[in-house]
Design a protein around this nucleic acid. Structure first.
Lengths: 223, 223
DNA sequence: GTTGTAAGTCTTACGCCGTAAGGCTAGCCG
DNA sequence: CGGCTAGCCTTACGGCGTAAGACTTACAAC
């Protein structure tokens, strides 16, 4: 008569959250509803998840894993084609995942810490460009220009608020993120007196802005 | 002994909301706190504002006005300099306003309707480019590429969700927004069989992506 | 077999939130 | 004077995240 339910796990909790968000938007994700869908009580989730913010972090982490599973299969080493074609493919593949999880852009925009899987994704892009000879400095600016377009949508963390970049997160997992670590080592040293820490928002913004405005102008001239 | 307080108005309510958000982030904006800061009760606000969503809409509207007051003073007609220099100035000026209202990107991203003042701002940009001979088609793609960078930050409405663009909002105020109206008339007719309505997200995304990737590549070659 | 311990779950409760329903008050118009 | 309406308030409801702590099970040690 002992009705055995599948045991709760962090992953099951997060998958329940994602299922709810996929179906009803991020507002549909509440601790009570997650619990209900898992046949448990709201407070039981807190054993596997520290709070709701942790749930959102976890959703992003799983999302990143889903993206990496797909994009890692897109030729890590560009053969005949240069980095740009490969990057394009990966970004458009990531976009397809995002299109299945409409809640993701909004949630990504509110994260204050870096998701390991999302970091890994960017690490792959950096490695791709680097292997084709692009300088870390340009890669760095370029990723800012792409912004969240690198993840398949157009949205940028404009409001990090969290002060200087927490490099410890990156350096701690340097073995996993060799390219980010290498870039950080070089670019950070190149510009030690930056007013806003590693990434000067204003500088990055103007770089991107000019890149785009010039691109439009060039196309206008061509027409 | 009748203690006369300043009367509540929609504008005072919205300004209270903005003040709260400026100070404590968007989460600090609650009906009760707004009322308290105004020396009133929460439910009294509902006479001047239909609900909280309306408050957020109103905050964006005032923000747009603040931006327009500044950017409208930046040479509407480019003289010696081309459209690009003027657009750059306007966008960086808008950015400064955004930097004073850190809550704005996140709130803008969640709006489902178009704010008149923000529409007016974009109308100005369109007019600027058009007056310099850029085609509406290219302007249209270009604004998508800029995304929310046109407003001074980097974030794009990826998830309109609201289906096809509600053109009635635009056409209703065509006298106020001559350039948007003109662009819409031309571009919409140009591409009647677009699968996703007026703005094909995928097309726009790829246009922007290629613009940026090519720009990075060009700079890499130049280095 | 009994007991101790820890993991996992649940109960209860608190203070927030947005807002529905409707009451009070003051000024204006007939 | 009586009624109307604009403007503000009171009360209350159902939702939220989660703190505090009690219960239940499983298993190890004796």
């Amino acid at each position: 008569m002992t009705e055995t339910r599948t045991a709760l796990t962090r992953e099951r909790v997060l998958r329940a959250a994602i299922a709810l968000a996929d179906e009803g938007g991020i507002a549909a994700v509440t601790m009570r509803r997650m619990a209900e869908n898992l046949g448990a009580e709201a407070m039981s989730l807190y054993y596997h998840v520290s709070n709701k913010e942790d749930v959102l972090d976890g959703m992003v982490e799983l999302l990143g894993q889903e993206i990496n599973e797909i994009t890692s299969r897109i030729s890590g080493t560009p053969d005949a084609q240069g980095w740009r074609a490969v990057a394009r493919q990966r970004i458009l593949a990531a976009r397809e995942v995002l299109l299945r999880h409409r809640w993701a852009p909004g949630v990504l925009a509110t994260r204050t810490s870096i998701s390991p899987s999302v970091a890994k994704y960017h690490d792959g892009l950096i490695g791709l460009m680097r292997s084709d000879g692009v300088s870390f400095d340009l890669i760095h600016h370029g990723l800012h220009a792409l912004g969240s377009r690198a993840l398949g949508f157009a949205q940028e963390l404009f409001d990090p608020g969290n002060g200087p970049v927490d490099e410890s997160v990156i350096t701690a997992m340097a073995p996993e993120l060799p390219n980010i670590a290498a870039m950080l080592a070089e670019v950070a040293h190149d510009d030690p007196e930056s007013t806003l820490g590693w990434c000067d928002d204003q500088t990055e913004f103007e770089f991107s802005l000019d890149l785009i405005l010039e691109g439009i102008e060039a196309r206008a001239r061509a027409a």
